[in-house]
Design a protein around this nucleic acid. Sequence first.
DNA 1: TCCATCACTTACAAATTTGTTAGCGAGCCA
DNA 2: TGGCTCGCTAACAAATTTGTAAGTGATGGA
Lengths: 116, 116
Amino acid sequence: MEERKVTSTNYENEQELLQCPVTYTLSIIGGRWKAAIIWQLSEGPVRFGTLRDRVGKVSDRILSKQLKELQEDGLVCRDAYPEVPPRVEYRLTEKGQSLEPVLEGILKWGLANRGA
Amino acid sequence: MEERKVTSTNYENEQELLQCPVTYTLSIIGGRWKAAIIWQLSEGPVRFGTLRDRVGKVSDRILSKQLKELQEDGLVCRDAYPEVPPRVEYRLTEKGQSLEPVLEGILKWGLANRGA
DNA sequence: TCCATCACTTACAAATTTGTTAGCGAGCCA
DNA sequence: TGGCTCGCTAACAAATTTGTAAGTGATGGA
């Protein structure tokens, strides 16, 4: 994990902002590829490479990072099988699944209001 | 408005990402102070300075920028009264108000899942 | 005259996010 | 032996976001 500077002018703000449940939620799903990842995983477990191909133009590094954050936030689970070449599957946790209705609300609003 | 480099490696991704209604919505409400701003305005019009004091530790520049983006996205309206010193009120548009149920969904999820 | 008010803006600095490129390791298979 | 797969990481580069500090302009009041 890339370390975060605690002397940051942002740091204090962030602590306070995360007190707000809305900001907390947005900080979890706000990463550039996270909604797409969750969307893909909502159908069931998906392998790393498959995810990379389906999600869009993500690089390995970025996909890896977003997945790691999703794991840390408890939305996604990683299952590694000891094979060669390695096989790793990602899937939603219960917490991750509980986000789906929220994402649907966001989706519907987007559909209704984009381009207006 | 600060210009955006079109040679950016990010630019192409962004165009594609905004095709997704979820990502589109998140890009609109995802700014650091935007949820808080919308929240404040949901009660009715608020002046710039009042907003700055209520929203948290925002600086003038940042609040101004977030408000401008919210206006461009059609969520917020600006009413300026020709007085001295100037008086400017911000309020939600209909489009902005239509976000409230979505934000409530986000809020409820955050309340239920923070700290779990 | 001089200062205060309010909603900004300008110039600059710092942190964060996202991206590109190249490589690794273990074992299967030709 | 040598190349291949797959998930991942390291080193680096670029863009974006957020922040701080210091103005500005018109006017009313001391």
